[in-house]
Design a protein around this nucleic acid. Structure first.
Length: 522
RNA sequence: GCCGCCGUAGUAUAGCCCGGCCCAGUAUGCGGGCCUUUCGAGCCCGUGACCCGGGUUCAAAUCCCGGCGGCGGCACCA
């Protein structure tokens, strides 16, 4: 072991170019193996999938914007549709205008988020526009004797719990159809009549026993934002989903495990209608460490603190819009979700992991600028004007800006960086600090390297621009007030930059001469 | 409480179906080094896990049984 350590140290002492040369010359076969390894990492195959025939779907409720957890079924459905050269369907499930009242803006906001995530869908449906279709299937299901009208109101719940049912279950098909029409005509009020699927009355899960397929909603009181009070009889989730998945030719349903029992319920519709059920795949829940994802919690936070949050795209929220505003790239989200895959277990994604993934994508494309927070003013003790020439990106040294400073000019540096006597001001030269003045030693970079001087960022006091960087920390922001090079003026809102020795930011607002950015991550 | 699913390092994941090639691979994190006008990236070294207990077997992360733990569901929500 010690021997290995010794050799490693020896090799590490060699310059990198030399290491590379030896590797290429003598161990070329090793490199080749490495390359082959890196290309894998794909999703497992879907059961019963035929290329060109796979149809997946993403079916959000438009009562709010989507969050990272919703992105999992969306991205996986998209990914599998692409993998098998199939189709993907986007379907808005807005069949409850009362307890999950759709948010009219959400239809477009969700599409915007999906497009940003590079999710491609080929067809788009809205369930509230398809109510008549559900009625038609309802009549057929009743005719086949698989459903009945329950007029027992609250009593049914007790009966079902005891493994019994409302006596109307055994009435004739003609009677059931008549009652269904009465429901449609508005004869019954809310809670007075429901359509139930006939299932196993002794099913171990009471909620599966004769589950509700249609109920009455007083849409005069609770109008639907899209269809107003046109309908009073509304299908439940399980009925509408079964019908739509079948009619739209969905072959593979990818959804969270909270739907496992629903799958069981939906199978009763398939069996009654003699339809082939799709493949159902249930995966665990996805959480992002330190972020709020719950729709209702976000909503209540926003209502209770109207001035505290920027909207549902507040970077402190785990919404897709929030992550976008923070500066997370869609590729990073996709990569992460593919890595998590379709396991049944839950996954708590750590922020470090998301940040690292994002950083790797960002690093080669983000320009670098100097930013000074907690600033201290020092005077330059130099004999003639000097020019610092710094590339925007180390990979493209030809793209650079120049910053000129002259004798007696004041510059700003981070307070923390002054605990050393000698420093190197990035791009400018080596200085010794004394009594608020920086005296030029020389300009050699090697001098700084040999002495391990810290290479710090700085900005001219008179020519720099105010920048406020907001770092999300739980439900709060940590604020860094400081100054950035005037080169910031070359960038527009949404620009992604790396600030030397500080972190990656996304430019969020420009008001007059004040710039505001959000810290994506270090 | 009842029903169901799951349980590999701090986090995520591979392997589990078809037991040996796994004293468990990868990524991220953490410690160290090289490189670098960044405390970023890259490169190198190291660190760290099969929930517990029995059983089957020459051999178990992998099969069986029993615990324990986590999650989901138990709506006229989706």
């Amino acid at each position: 072991m010690k021997l290995v350590q010794k050799y490693v140290n020896e090799i590490n002492k060699l310059p990198l170019s030399e290491q590379k040369r030896i590797l290429e010359e003598e161990y070329e076969w090793l490199l080749r193996e490495e390359k082959e390894k890196k290309e894998e990492k794909t999703l497992p195959p879907l059961p019963n999938a035929v290329e060109g025939k796979v149809v997946t779907r993403f079916a959000p409720n438009p009562d709010f914007v989507i969050h990272l957890g919703n992105a999992r079924p969306a991205i996986l459905s998209d990914e599998y549709a692409k993998m098998y050269k199939g189709r993907m369907i986007l379907r808005f499930e807005d069949t409850d205008p009362r307890t999950k009242r759709p948010m009219i803006e959400a239809y477009d906001l969700i599409k915007e988020d999906l497009r940003w995530l590079n999710v491609v869908w080929h067809e788009e449906y809205i369930q509230s526009q398809r109510i008549e279709i559900f009625y038609d299937v309802a009549r057929e299901v009743i005719k086949r004797g698989c459903a009945y009208i329950d007029l027992c109101k609250e009593k049914s719940r007790e009966l079902l719990r005891a493994g019994k049912s409302c006596e109307t279950r055994n009435n004739s098909v003609e009677w059931q159809l008549e009652q269904f029409d009465k429901m449609l005509e508005g004869y019954y009020g809310e809670g007075e009549a429901v359509v139930r699927m006939k299932t196993d009355l002794s099913h171990p899960n009471p909620s599966v026993r004769d589950w509700v397929a249609f109920r009455i909603i007083d849409t005069e009181r609770y109008p639907h934002p899209l269809v107003g009070s046109k309908y009073v009889v509304w299908p439940t989730y399980n009925f509408a989903v079964s019908v739509d998945d079948h009619m739209m030719g969905v072959t593979h349903v990818l959804r969270g495990k909270e739907h496992q029992v629903n799958t069981e319920k939906q199978l009763y519709v398939y069996r009654c209608m003699n339809w082939d059920p799709p493949e159902f795949i249930h995966f665990g829940r996805l959480k992002l460490e330190g972020f709020i994802m719950s729709k209702s919690y976000i909503r209540s936070l926003m209502e209770e603190n109207p001035d505290k949050f920027m909207g549902f795209d507040d970077p402190r929220f785990g919404t897709i819009a929030g992550l976008r505003r923070r500066g997370i790239l869609p590729e990073a989200i996709r990569q992460l979700i593919l890595e998590v895959g379709i396991k049944r277990g839950d996954a708590k994604i750590s922020w470090d992991n998301l940040a690292a993934t994002n950083r790797k994508i960002l690093d080669p494309i983000a320009d670098r600028l100097m930013f000074v927070w907690d600033p201290v003013e020092i005077t330059l003790d130099i004999n003639e004007c000097m020019t610092a020439s710094i590339p925007y990106h180390p990979d493209r040294p030809e793209r650079k800006r120049e910053i000129q400073v002259c004798p007696r000019e004041k510059i700003l540096v981070n307070k923390n960086d002054l605990d050393r006597r000698d420093i190197r001001l990035m791009g400018l030269g080596n200085f010794s600090i004394e009594n608020g003045a920086a005296k030029l030693i020389n300009v050699e970079l090697d001098y700084a390297r040999q002495r391990k001087l810290p290479i710090i960022q700085w900005v001219p006091a008179s020519k720099s621009v105010k920048l406020k960087v907001m770092e999300p920390q739980g439900l709060e922001f940590r604020i860094y007030d400081g100054y950035i090079e005037s080169a910031i003026r070359e960038y527009k809102i949404d620009a992604r930059l790396q600030l030397f020795r500080f972190g990656f930011i996304r430019l969020d607002q420009i008001s007059g001469d004040e710039y505001i950015a959000i810290l994506s991550h270090k």
